[in-house]
C-alpha cells in the first residue's frame, strides 16, 4: 500500500512542476522565508533580549508551517509550549543572569568565521542532498486531516501510551532536577557577588575555589 501510494505521489509530482506552485506552496515559502529570516536574526543579533523576541517569531512561523502541513494539534502544542513557556523561560534566564539590555559587542565568540564556514558547508551539503532526493516527491494534503486533535488523541493514546507515560515521568524528573539544581546553592548568591569582584585573580585557580565555595557557604548557612 505504501509502495502504491509512493508511486501515486511520484506520478502526481511528475505533473506538478516547481514553476506552477499551488497556493499552499506559495504560502509555505513566504512563511518559511519569514521564519528563516527571524532565525538568522536570532543567531546574529547583538541584543540578547531581541534574540529571544525574534525566536518567538521563528517559532510562530514554524507553527504556521505545521498548520499548512495539516498538523493542527502540533501547531497548537508548539504555540503553547515553545512560545508560551520555553521563550518565557529563556527571558527569565536572560534577566536572572543580568544580561545587558543594549548592544553587547561580545555576543559572538572568537570562532565565528569557523562557525560560519561549518554552517555554510552543512547547509550546502544538506540542501543538495535533500533537493536531489525529494525533487519529485509530492505530499497530498487533500483528504482527511492528518493531525487534527481527534486523530492525534487517537494515535497517541492507542499506540503510544507507554512512551507517553514514560515521557511524563521524564518531564517530572527533569523539573525536580531543575528545582534541586537551582535550590542547592541558594546561599551561594552572596558568595557569587564576592567571587565576581576578584574573579580575575581567581580564574586560574577557579576549579579549587568552586569546589570549595558551595560547601563552605552551605556550612555558613546552617
Amino acid at each position: 500500500m505504501s509502495l502504491a501510494a509512493t508511486a501515486a505521489t511520484a506520478t502526481a509530482a511528475a505533473e506538478r512542476g516547481f514553476l506552477s506552485p499551488t497556493g499552499v506552496e506559495i504560502t509555505f515559502v513566504l512563511v518559511g522565508l519569514v521564519t528563516l529570516g527571524a532565525a538568522m536574526v536570532t543567531v546574529t543579533t547583538r541584543q540578547l533580549v531581541h534574540a529571544a523576541l525574534w525566536l518567538v517569531m521563528a517559532l510562530g512561523g514554524l507553527a504556521v508551517e505545521y498548520l499548512l502541513l495539516t498538523a493542527e494539534f502540533i501547531a497548537w502544542v508548539q504555540v503553547l509550549i515553545y512560545i508560551g513557556s520555553v521563550v518565557v523561560l529563556l527571558l527569565f534566564g536572560l534577566m536572572l543572569t543580568k544580561a545587558p539590555i543594549g548592544r553587547s559587542p561580545d555576543a559572538d565568540s572568537g570562532n565565528r568565521p569557523v562557525a560560519l564556514a561549518v554552517a555554510l558547508a552543512a547547509a550546502a551539503a544538506l540542501v543538495w542532498v535533500v533537493v536531489d532526493a525529494f525533487r519529485t516527491t509530492w505530499i497530498g494534503l487533500d483528504g482527511p486531516a492528518q493531525g487534527s486533535t481527534e486523530v492525534s488523541g487517537r494515535f497517541l493514546f492507542r499506540n503510544w501510551v507507554l512512551p507517553f507515560e514514560a515521557l511524563s515521568v521524564l518531564l517530572l524528573a527533569a523539573l525536580v532536577g531543575a528545582i534541586a539544581l537551582s535550590r542547592k546553592n541558594g546561599g551561594a548568591a552572596k558568595n557569587g557577588g564576592a567571587a565576581k569582584v576578584d574573579r580575575t585573580a581567581k580564574v586560574d585557580s577557579a576549579a579549587d575555589e568552586d569546589s570549595g565555595t558551595p560547601g563552605a557557604s552551605g556550612k555558613e548557612q546552617r
Binding site: 516547481f18 499552499v24 506552496e25 528563516l36 535533500v130 516527491t137 509530492w138 494534503l141
Partner: peptide, 11 residues
C-alpha cells in the same frame, strides 16, 4: 505540496 520545500526549510 512538494516535499522539498519543508525539507529544505528544515535543513
Amino acid at each position: 505540496m512538494h516535499l522539498a520545500y519543508p525539507a529544505v526549510l528544515a535543513a
